[in-house]
């Protein structure tokens, strides 16, 4: 439980921070697409009996780079690229999982999150990569914001927009992969979007939107993990339902103000 709790806190910090940049770029669905790709990483890990988290990070980051290259080539519309890779990732996973002797409880934990499966090495890996992700966002914060706000002006101001966009999608891939133990692959997209949309209802600046979303994600993850532990619920499901509940509450309060 302690391991799941610490890993969950790290996810609750990085997921909404990256999510803010994705939502304002109207690129929320990239997290869902990459999560399906991450599932193939898990399947490869299970098939070859390798460390699934490490394999998933490598596979998801590599595919995210391919997605960004295709998206910027302008020959294929951005959302079509996502629509190609989402079922593509799922299809590859199903084939590989069947080769690895089919579905089992272990796989269910990856899909929807489980607090009992977080190992020591998972925890250190999550904390290490999470801190690197966080430091990268802090270092490139203004460049990420400028590129998201107005790509052309950013380019003219000398910001390497292509690199900054690639950086954002790689950080998304890392976040999605790290989240699979606690939140689950199929539900991480929600943790990157729902707290952000909730925070945006109240924010008076982009930085405030980050702080609010961070707060809402932490509340959802902490209470979600407790609910999972005491009520024996899948952690990811509890976290996402709590996030939705907070969104509903904030929207209601805002309407009545």
């Amino acid at each position: 439980m302690i391991r799941a709790f610490l890993a969950g806190l790290m996810i609750a910090i990085i997921a909404p921070i990256i999510g803010n940049f994705l939502v304002v770029r109207r690129f929320s669905l990239i997290a869902d697409t990459l999560s399906h790709v991450a599932l193939s990483g898990v399947a490869i890990g299970l098939l070859f009996k390798a460390q699934p988290l490490l394999v998933t990070v490598i596979v998801t980051v590599l595919v995210s780079i391919v997605i960004e290259k295709l998206r910027t080539s302008k020959n294929i519309p951005g959302e079509a690229v996502l629509a190609m890779f989402l079922p593509g990732g799922l299809a590859l996973s199903i084939v590989l999982i069947s080769l690895a002797n089919g579905f089992n409880a272990n796989l269910f934990a990856y899909l929807f999150g489980s607090i009992t499966t977080v190992t020591d090495s998972d925890l250190w890996f999550t904390l290490g990569l999470g801190i690197i992700t966080l430091a990268t966002v802090v270092f490139f914060y203004k460049k990420l914001l400028f590129a998201a706000f107005d790509e052309e002006s950013a380019k003219i101001s000398g910001i390497p927009v292509g690199f900054v966009n690639l950086l954002l999608i790689v950080l998304t891939a890392i976040t999605v992969s790290l989240s699979m133990r606690v939140v689950g692959i199929l539900l991480i997209g929600a943790l990157m979007v729902i707290p952000v949309v909730t925070g945006m209802q109240l924010a008076r600046s982009f930085l405030q939107s980050i702080y609010y979303s961070l707060g809402f994600a932490l509340v959802a993850v902490i209470f979600g993990l407790f609910a999972s532990y005491y009520l024996n619920l899948p952690a990811g499901g509890a976290i996402v339902l709590l996030s939705l509940g907070i969104f509903g509450l904030v929207a209601l309060l805002k309407q009545n103000r």
Binding site: V24, R26, F149, R204, S205, F206
Partner: peptide
């Protein structure tokens, strides 16, 4: 311009 709808302050 995409950014017009952002929750972003004038100073930012």
């Amino acid at each position: 311009l995409n950014g017009i709808s952002f929750p972003i302050s004038v100073e930012e």
